[in-house]
Design a binder for these strands. Structure first.
Length: 545
RNA sequence: UGGGCUGUCGCCAAGCGGUAAGGCACAGGACUUUGACUCCUGCACUCGAAGGUUCAAAUCCUUCCAGCUCAGCCA
């Protein structure tokens, strides 16, 4: 089922040829890495980076490290370190014993920075954050060189050591690379290498009060770990020159190469950390694991198989540099495809309408064998409210006055009447059944019937709550995101056939004609009764009227 | 208006000088005790536009048009 290996080989040709060329065929030497910042949870966008880095290494028999990019103590928390590992494992990948932390290299980073100073390629700058920003210039304006750019190697070395020793306050000084303030690439305008931040780091504690910037730490981290190919999102395209500048100026034997791929975006979803945080803070999402979110936690709770996510990612393609927004329907397609073979098909009625079978003996319970299950059938059952129409539209093959349908695995029934309340709402329908049409007897029914509907015994039905999801937000034509008012529909009075009382969180069901469902893992001990999440609906070619 | 990048079916996406793969979606049809699944069938004489080179161009050249992206002591 999981042919992602094949898919990734077909797509992302630019990566394959680059890797092939660099390694001159020794592809098992391919070494990649997935470098998350432990400052948040992973989502489908991060999953693509996980997928590409790990999958590519797997295809060629190479290795992929997991490196926590924890160079900014202000934004990172230890809890994410474990969460991210769980998420990657769930996605199906293994970094073996190669879990690393950028912070493990702080000593080395410091040494390399000093090296840059000695080579006259870095200097300590006293400009304030505001002054620095102003001196950077702009998109069509060259920057201005720092007045501290000419300091001697000795002075720089001394100042840098004193920065490290905590002699200066936050923001008082920075270490900067000496490159080119007139570069058309803003990342090359004497970028900051180290900043001062008297903050406790989750890994190194108070040992450091200066921390390296991403642009400096990332290539060095790659080089130190022996990474051959640093595959990252397109957003880092403009950083490639600075990545190479550090690598080339620090004389690494084996130079890692950065290759970018287009990030994925899925229609009607939100990926941005701050946007997600806002949704959660405002109560519009039920935490990071809200099943309507395409966070890893959300998709996991929703019931998406990880293999479906991998397959989706592979099929959505690994393009070079094109903006793309994949339709949500494509994700759902792969979810269905991977769910179908592992799901047990059972009956559940989401919106129950009582049916009394008038000629079925009162009090009698008949056990029916449906696909190997024993399912009780009796005089009073529930069917889906949507499966009955008092005044049927044309091509409505379900229950309607005078109309005969098959009850799945049971008998043919004909609607003979309707009961209503004072407001005219249908409260129950009356039917008669034909004993000669019993299912599974091997005897051909005496006549054909167009519709087969699902049902649950009134006496034996297990009360459940069904959660029907749609995406939390909708894309507007203007390119904005708006809340989807119908992103959650709760069906509190749903009923399932008896066997679902034994469901575990790992079980996947297809509720016949209603979609794929699983137990909500958030409420695994059932304090709210049995809560089932609809993972994805079934496709339907039925169009009323 | 500086730099980088991109424009192939509604959405993804192959293709890299030899006459437009595939998936999703959609539309027909077959099958059907899930209006599901499965199975057939259809779905770009055309590759952002215009010129040019060539026996031959989505693929090469030129110009133009459109879109995305970059100014954290974030990653």
């Amino acid at each position: 089922m999981d042919d992602s290996r094949h898919i990734l080989l077909e797509t992302g040709a630019f990566i394959h040829s680059a890797v092939n060329e660099d390694l001159k065929g020794r592809l098992s030497e391919l070494h990649t890495r997935f470098p998350p910042e432990p400052g948040g949870f992973l989502h489908i966008g991060s999953a693509k980076a996980v997928y590409i880095n790990f999958e590519l290494a797997k295809i060629y028999g190479g290795k992929c490290n997991l490196r926590m990019d924890d160079t900014n103590p202000a934004k990172e928390e230890a809890e994410f370190v474990q969460a991210i590992q769980d998420e990657i494992k769930w996605l199906g990948y293994d970094w073996e014993d190669r879990l690393y932390f950028a912070s493990d290299y702080f000593d080395k980073f410091y040494g390399y920075a000093a090296r840059l100073i000695e080579k006259g390629l870095a200097f300590v700058c006293d400009l304030s954050a505001d002054e620095l920003r102003a001196s950077f210039g702009g998109i069509d304006k060259a920057g201005v060189e720092s007045p501290f750019r000419g300091r001697s190697v000795e002075e720089n070395l001394d100042l840098f050591a004193r920065m490290k020793n905590g002699e200066f306050g936050d923001g008082a000084k920075t270490l900067r690379a000496k490159i080119d303030m007139a570069s058309s690439n803003l990342n090359m305008r004497d970028p900051v290498i180290y900043r001062i931040a008297h903050k406790t780091h989750s890994n190194t504690g108070d040992k450091w009060c200066i921390y390296p910037m991403y642009d400096f730490a990332h290539p060095l981290g790659d080089a130190i770990e022996g990474v051959t190919h640093s595959l990252c999102g397109l957003e880092f395209r403009d950083h490639r020159p600075i990545y190479e500048w550090y690598i080339n100026n620090l004389d690494f034997e084996q130079k890692p190469r950065q290759i970018e791929f287009a990030e994925i975006s899925v229609e009607n979803t939100i990926l941005g950390k701050r946007h997600l945080r806002k949704l959660i803070a405002e109560g519009n999402a039920d935490g990071w694991d809200d099943p309507r979110l395409v966070t890893i936690m959300g998709m996991r709770r929703r019931g998406y198989p990880p293999s479906a996510i991998r397959d989706f990612l592979g099929n959505a393609g690994v393009s070079t540099a094109k903006n793309n927004t994949v339709e949500f329907a494509m994700l759902e397609h792969f979810v269905r495809e991977h769910l179908a073979p592992v799901s047990k098909v059972v009956m559940a009625v989401l919106n129950p309408l009582k049916v009394v079978i008038e000629n079925f003996p009162e009090g009698e319970v008949e056990m029916l064998n449906i696909d190997g299950r024993e399912v009780p059938f009796c005089r009073e059952i529930f069917v889906e409210r949507e499966d009955f129409m008092e005044e049927p539209v044309k091509k409505f093959f379900r229950l309607a006055p005078g109309n005969e349908v098959r009850l799945k695995g049971a008998y043919f029934v004909t609607c003979t009447g309707v009961e209503k309340d004072a407001d005219g709402n249908v409260t129950e329908i009356r039917c008669t059944y034909d004993p000669a049409t019993k299912s599974g007897t091997g005897v051909e029914p005496p006549r054909k019937v167009k519709g087969t509907i699902h049902w649950v015994s009134a006496k034996h039905g297990v009360p459940i709550k069904a959660m029907l999801y749609d995406t939390l937000v909708l894309d507007t034509p203007e390119g904005e995101k708006e809340l989807n008012p119908n992103s959650l529909i709760e069906m509190p009075n749903a009923l399932g056939e008896p066997c679902i009382a034994d469901a575990t969180v790992d079980d996947r069901f297809q509720f016949m004609r209603n979609g794929y469902f699983c137990l909500d893992s958030k409420d695994a001990n059932g304090t709210e009764g049995l809560v089932f999440n609809r993972i994805v609906s079934l496709k339907s070619s039925y169009r009323p009227q």
